[in-house]
Design a protein around this nucleic acid. Structure first.
Lengths: 224, 224
DNA sequence: TAAATTTGTGAAAGTCTATTCACTTTTGTT
DNA sequence: AACAAAAGTGAATAGACTTTCACAAATTTA
């Protein structure tokens, strides 16, 4: 009779797949794509190299999945912020801050996902991801402009500039091995204000942008 | 008696070296680091692979030299603009515009130099280069703030954001295979205004930033 | 428990490219 | 011209990977 996977087996397979993805994400987060060789990923996941190929046809496809997972998660968070309460300026600030804070938690991951190139295949996926980030910002911008909060501007250019601005500002210190923790809050605050000014948002009601009511709490990265 | 290189030979060797560097730059410009294999560079330079190693000890060192050459050239241009006439805001705009325009001429080159990672060695060199770009912008910012043209802000963060903003805005369309030429002027103008607003510069006297006096002509990339 | 089928293993094969090196050609000295 | 030294060649080497595959272990059916 035909072979049928038991429920338990189903679960174990799904679990393996999950563990592979997580292993890859962890390694990328720790040391960029450079550190995430197939062997390393397999070892980290507690499987043999060969087994990996039962779950993913190639390294590239594995990475694309890792990328998409992470971005889906990220975009969901940003979406929630952008579709939330408050003025467009407030929401824009909250979105930038949220993204920046999480990026600082896993700098290599952010870098790998936004900038570090790999196969053509992965690159293609990444471009779509960047656009997804851009789209979130475009939404707030469009709304802010419609409401008269921001001056008229090219949405796509501004959105791309925002993504680029904080990417660079976040990645540079990473590369320079700057000590973590200390100046992070200030760094994030400055990036937020840079972006706010850039889109022509009015000054933050709370003052200089350093000590103001925390309108939106930044959720932690999903762990499940 | 000891071997002594004739003047003619000296010249030819120097010429070869130069040709290798140019070949590498050309290939990188055409298709990024990916396309610039040692074999390809050698062929493009009209030499054998082996010969290349008489001029450079490794691929990484060759790339570092290409990078430094290009950046030195670029920074010199920006320096001239930043140390020139006019308000800080005008000079900042001119610098961003100049950089953006030249980057659009060789998009892959700009990308490879600013973002595309390679060996640790090349990466290290690139970080220094980015800082050099950042320093130029920091100078205008500091001056503008001192003069009361711009509000107080973290120089290093703003400078990094500027570099990041136009990098992303310039690179994204490249990756997306957008048609060149048509929207370029608009793209550059929008990026310039984004950065100007971001540092808190007053509105451009010339209006929306699209049709205004060309205060500073952008020099072409050096060809010699 | 035996046969059938799927899953897991890890050494070996395949791939891609930087680097080397035995050899040829060219250049400089006597 | 004859010899020494340097520059140039490109096939072979080398190393770091991904990917495969013959085989072992585990799981499902009868």
């Amino acid at each position: 009779m035909a072979y049928k996977r038991s429920a338990l087996m189903q679960e174990r397979l799904a679990d393996n797949r999950e563990r592979i993805v997580r292993a890859a994400r962890k390694l990328i987060g720790a040391g960029g794509l450079r550190e995430a060789s197939i062997n390393a990923v397999a070892a980290q996941a507690g499987l043999s190299t060969g087994a990996l190929y039962r779950y993913f046809p190639s390294k590239a496809e594995l990475f694309v999945e890792v990328l998409n997972d992470a971005v889906r998660n990220e975009v969901a968070i940003l979406d929630a912020i952008v579709d939330g309460e408050g003025s467009a300026a407030q929401r824009l600030r909250a979105a930038v801050r949220s993204f920046a804070e999480r990026a600082l938690e896993g700098p290599h991951l952010a870098y790998a996902f936004i900038a570090e190139p790999a196969d053509a295949e992965v690159d293609a996926a990444r471009i779509l991801c960047r656009q997804q980030f851009g789209n979130v910002f475009k939404r707030v911008l469009r709304e802010g402009i419609a409401r008269g909060e921001f001056p008229a501007q090219a949405l796509d250019v501004s959105a791309a500039c925002i993504v680029g601005a904080y990417t660079e500002a976040l990645v540079r210190p990473t590369a320079t091995q700057t000590r973590r923790g200390a100046g992070d809050a200030r760094l994030v605050a400055e990036i937020v204000e840079f972006c706010a000014r850039a889109v022509g948002a009015p000054l933050d009601a709370g003052g200089s942008g350093k000590h103001h009511a925390k309108t939106q709490r930044t959720p932690k990265r999903k762990t499940a």
